[in-house]
């Protein structure tokens, strides 16, 4: 009720708008940049928007956006609610498989299929949450990993070959012609841009809401939150379901982009990707993991071309180094170094 405060209430409507613009000017500039980026790229390379380098770079950016939402959803669990889940690949890959199976074998309309992905994600993340929240901490990590591995085994099982394609994965998912990323990549680019913005604002809004405060309270001091009358189970389950939904939608769009869904999406590697993106960007910052996703996707693409299969080993070693040496992510390490540089009085304790 009193949120706006007296001083701002006195201001006229127009100046509030101007204040708002000034406050978020960096973000707004970034938004304008992202919207115009395909055309900017086509200007730089001197090629039409829908072909050549601009088209290829759009594809890379789409992938970055989707992984950014995936990282964001993981940060909601790990950073904001303090749940260490090792089963996040289950949601991402699950979303990809659900939309793939519905589009390919049941000819479902796209919107219905997306709705089904959301319902599926809420159901499966509710189930995983309900089971794994019976235990805590590192123990929960173990249970979630076991559940995700079971899904991985099922995705490779020969019994469902006619639906899932077993170890070859689900190939050739029919994407509606008006959204086909091969034909209309620009449309797909704006769809994913809209998706990442929507996901970010939804997550930011939720984190700043009373629910988000309870999540933080549970992370910081569970006994106290319980004493205040909040049910840890219910709030953590909510976090699981919201995070699972975002991850599944990102996975579904990823399946539309690649027109396939493979068992590797459900494997532990996908979970490690989420972990690394979150750790690199900084745990519990929402935007940090998204930048981490961008960095890793672009670096991953370049290194993959340079090193081939050896890249995966280097990726793992990089992950180990980040965990050992940069507990606050690269951004956190940079901030710390800057604080130390400015003077010992501002040097923050790790």
């Amino acid at each position: 009720m009193e949120r706006i405060g007296i001083r701002q209430e006195a201001l006229s409507r127009g100046s509030v708008f101007r204040l708002w613009i000034r406050r978020y000017r960096i973000w707004l500039a970034g938004l304008v940049l992202l919207i115009g980026l395909p055309f900017l790229l086509s200007g730089i390379f001197g090629e039409p928007v829908e072909s050549g380098w601009p088209r290829f770079l759009q594809g890379l950016l789409i992938r970055v956006y989707l992984m950014a939402v995936y990282a964001l959803s993981y940060d909601l669990l790990m950073g904001y609610t303090g749940i260490l889940s090792f089963g996040h690949a289950l949601f991402f890959g699950g979303g990809a498989y659900v939309i793939g199976i519905l589009l390919k074998h049941f000819q479902t309309p796209l919107l219905v299929a997306l709705l089904a992905v959301i319902l599926f994600a809420l159901g499966i993340s509710g189930l995983v949450g309900a089971l794994s929240l019976r235990v805590r901490g590192v123990y929960l990590a173990m249970v979630t990993l076991a559940l995700a591995q079971a899904a991985f085994i099922l995705s490779e099982a020969a019994d469902f070959r006619q639906y899932t394609g077993a170890e070859d994965g689900l190939q050739g998912i029919p994407v509606p012609a008006w959204l086909d990323p091969a034909e209309h990549r620009l449309r797909f680019y704006y769809l994913t841009l809209f998706f990442i913005l929507g996901a970010y604002f939804l997550a930011r809004r939720l984190v700043n809401s009373p629910t988000g405060r309870v999540w933080a309270a549970l992370r910081e001091n569970e006994e106290r939150a319980v004493a205040l009358g909040y049910s840890p189970f219910a709030f953590r389950l909510l976090a699981f379901m919201f995070s699972g939904m975002l991850a599944a939608l990102a996975g579904a769009l990823n399946a539309l982009l690649n027109k396939n869904a493979t068992p590797s999406l459900l494997s532990v590697n996908t979970t490690i990707q989420a972990l690394l993106m979150t750790l690199v960007g900084g745990v519990g910052t929402l935007s940090g993991p998204m930048f981490g996703a961008g960095l890793l996707e672009l670096a991953g693409y370049l290194f993959n071309r340079a090193f081939g299969p050896l890249w995966f080993l280097l990726f793992g070693l990089f992950y180990v180094i980040v965990v050992l040496a940069f507990p606050h992510g690269l951004a956190g390490a940079w901030q710390q170094a800057r604080a130390l540089h400015r003077g010992p009085s501002r040097g923050s304790a790790p």
């Binding site: 590192v138 490690i272 750790l279 080993l313 990726f315 992950y319 507990p327």
Partner: peptide
């Protein structure tokens, strides 16, 4: 302790690769 778990998960990945 959280980072310990993260580390061992990473080591398992490194081992496989």
């Amino acid at each position: 302790p959280i980072y310990q778990v993260l580390l061992t998960l990473g080591l398992s990945y490194v081992g496989v690769e």
